[in-house]
Nucleic acid binder design. Structure first.
Lengths: 232, 232
DNA sequence: CATCGTTTCAAACGTTTGTATCAATCATAC
DNA sequence: GTATGATTGATACAAACGTTTGAAACGATG
């Protein structure tokens, strides 16, 4: 009844252009550092377009995050469903659970390389944004999947106390976010991260994912209570 | 010739109050989210005080970071000097090197508890700040110590390829920043970080440091090239 | 062709931003 | 005591900010 392609294509054009431009500029300059004027200019849209399509700048911010976060967590849930169905009553291997958590975040399915990388940087910053609404959105989106992944990890490493696992998941979050951020910056400038450290050559996603899984798996399996190093 | 205590005490009073207030507000609202007006008001200083003492707002930002970063890295260098002198030609244990890197950052020596925690949050954000000058400052401050720690780590785990070590240091950075940030938030709200995960009870610095070292040591020692998990 | 809801556009609004100005105040040195 | 340099104070400024407004343009429907 309503021909979508012509009718809404134009609409979704500027709407999508705004989302793309905002995602890039938010990643580059921060949420407050990127102005509505910059964004609309980059999107070749009118100044009022943001307020028309998203109400306020905060609405645009939420839309930017929501667009990417939703498919990531849906994919995580789907992957976990498949794995757990196959495994039956047996616990999943630790590496598989880590793969469920990390792969969708790294792959940024359904987005172009450029966009995905912009959002990677944005994503790495999401947990420390001073924007309360963004914080809430992320927690809402992550709530379900984190509970399930936490449970799966507890079964994968049954000897680890739950409180210990809490911290190790926290470490995992940090590693992943920082690494993805670092990785996504290499395109523009490989030297912007850790000064004095050797610069790696290979940068493909699969290798980064594998390295993250290796590292996190070993860290999570680590025996707690290593004797103190004795140096204060 | 010039009696410092009376003459400059007043000066350093508002200067210090500005630094303290700025540190707290930068951590809470971000570098751009905290205005000069807020900061001067919180510091009970005049609006023009920031421009008088630091030239510009950017000058204040740099001063805030510099004040904390400098002693942290000086302590790291001192600790490493001591350890390497004692060890002679022998490589340092991995845990000791990690301790050198992590302890000064966590202890925030010479600052009050409140201030230290504010800066912890600020610190965790420092690597992804869109402020080019802050970025440069951090790299300058970190350059020397990262080179030395990198070398010490290479000796501690001689079988690890340097390129592999690069990524694992990157993971270590991320873990530490995120964990310190999460840890510093527990005072105000223990539930603000990972939704659905169990909330830990103990929160003392030493325990966090030990957990970080355990986790990172295991991750860094991990053998690379674990077979793929086989799940796409 | 007229009409409708939707989208775009240019212009303006009132705030808030960082910074500059200049007089008042202060502690110190002569 | 008075002159001097350093600091504080109240006020003003131009620029940038997010948002609002009302008219113009658009495509689809009757």
């Amino acid at each position: 009844m309503v021909p979508l392609p012509p009718g809404q294509a134009v609409t979704e054009d500027t709407r999508g252009a705004l989302l793309d431009a905002a995602e890039r500029l938010f990643a580059e300059n921060g949420l407050e550092g990127a102005s509505v004027r910059e964004i609309t200019k980059a999107a070749k849209a009118n100044l009022g377009a943001v307020n028309y399509h998203f109400g306020t700048k905060d609405g645009l911010i939420l839309a930017v995050f929501s667009r990417r976060l939703k498919p990531i967590n849906e994919r995580r849930i789907a992957m976990l469903d498949t794995l757990e169905a196959k495994a039956g009553s047996q616990p999943l291997p630790l590496e598989s659970v880590l793969n469920v958590f990390l792969r969708p975040m790294i792959e940024q399915q359904g987005s172009s390389l450029q966009d995905g990388q912009s959002f990677s940087r944005l994503m790495s910053r999401v947990f420390q944004e001073p924007n309360a609404q963004v914080e809430q959105l992320v927690y809402d989106q992550f709530g379900t999947i984190v509970k399930r992944i936490n449970a799966a990890l507890l079964r994968a490493v049954p000897d680890l106390p739950p409180e210990e696992l809490f911290w190790r998941i926290s470490f995992l979050f940090g590693s992943a976010n920082h690494a993805i951020d670092a990785w996504s910056r290499f395109e523009t400038n490989p030297f912007t991260h850790i000064p004095g450290a050797p610069v790696p050559r290979t940068l493909d996603r699969e290798a980064l994912l594998q390295r993250l899984i290796d590292y996190a798996a070993a860290g999570i399996r680590a025996t707690a209570g290593t004797p103190p190093t004795g140096i204060s």
